[in-house]
Design a protein around this nucleic acid. Structure first.
Lengths: 186, 186
DNA sequence: TTCGTAAGTATCGACTCGATACGATCTAGT
DNA sequence: ACTAGATCGTATCGAGTCGATACTTACGAA
């Protein structure tokens, strides 16, 4: 329990310091996080609702963050054809270029320079803590499409894969992106 | 490198979710963090400067956060007698009561329920990452007083310990608090 | 058709955060 | 003792976060 408390303090402090480090290129930490998400999300997940679930915040806050990013010319919104309540978001070329200088890269480098065992231990611990936190507040995991229990490869038509939940064909690149609907296999 | 990147994303996401969880009792995450620090810091470290270094932010921001906490009746400021530029901060009884319901407790519980090995691995990894981050931006470690290279037990006068840097007597409880000036032994 | 629900937006108030400028106080060098 | 520079803290600005609340529009089932 003593260890648990010190680890908790460690996690909080590290989180704060990393947060404060993420003020780069005129973007706020939240804006970077939104950009990162949108770059990795599949077409069913590039909308305000999914981003809200991912960030664990509220629709209102996300709406404002998206407005800020739109003003900066980093994304484009358009209403979905199928469900006209939904808004599809697309990152601009400018956003993708910006992501090449993502301040998070410094963190990845630091992570990579850790001893192999320590790196694996940290990864496992973080994964477990995140799963716990998500379960606690009813969040979604946002895993990659191909690791989902609804992922199918038996599509008779042209496409290589298929989503058994939404019943739509999936390209190979689709299957490697993260999805709001993803549910683990086991 | 693949592992490093996914661990990085994990850390960022967990950090954000925990951040958003820390809105309790009408306090903001930063205000909780400040309160926690002030409750653990020794008398040389309960001032705006030290808090600024701990949070890794700027003097101005800390000044505002302290004003907010003062308005809520959670702390009292008074100018230092020795150096009248400095401000000594004391938490009120109300603040200490509030800290009993610190939302971070939920996190500690989650941490404690981890398998022992995983918990230790996570702690080690976090420690290393924090040290790296601090070194990168010239931050201070804020360890406990008694683990400092300036900690002495050879005080001829009444007090049980002594600080070799500031040359002042230290009580036993002093020695268990965290300090801005702390430097590791080895 | 209508009623309930879901997706987004707009607005409010309190606050964070970096940047900048400033006043007060200490300290070293003369 | 006197000044020049450094240090500590505050005030203010602008952009943005964040939760809360109150909408609007669109879908979908009874």
């Amino acid at each position: 329990m003593e260890t648990a408390e010190s680890s908790t303090i460690l996690l909080e402090r590290l989180a704060r310091i990393l947060q404060n480090e993420a003020h780069a290129a005129g973007l706020k930490p939240t804006q970077w996080e939104a950009l990162r998400y949108l770059a990795r999300a599949n077409r069913f997940s590039r909308n305000p609702s999914a981003l809200t679930a991912y960030l664990g915040t509220t629709k209102g806050t996300v709406s404002q963050t998206l407005n800020a990013l739109e003003r900066k010319g980093l994304l484009v919104k358009k209403t979905d054809h199928v469900d006209r309540r939904q808004v599809d978001i697309d990152l601009t070329r400018k956003a993708r270029q910006l992501l090449d200088e993502d301040p998070i890269h410094a963190l990845t480098v630091a992570m990579a320079s850790l001893p192999v065992g320590e790196q694996a231990g940290l990864g496992d611990g973080l994964r477990t803590m995140l799963e716990e936190a998500l379960r606690r507040r009813g969040g979604r995991p946002f895993g990659v499409c191909r690791s989902c229990r609804f992922f199918r490869t038996d599509d008779s038509r042209g496409a290589p894969h298929r989503c058994g939940l939404l019943d739509v064909p999936l390209s190979d690149s689709d299957s490697r992106q993260i999805c709001v609907e993803q549910q683990a296999l086991c």
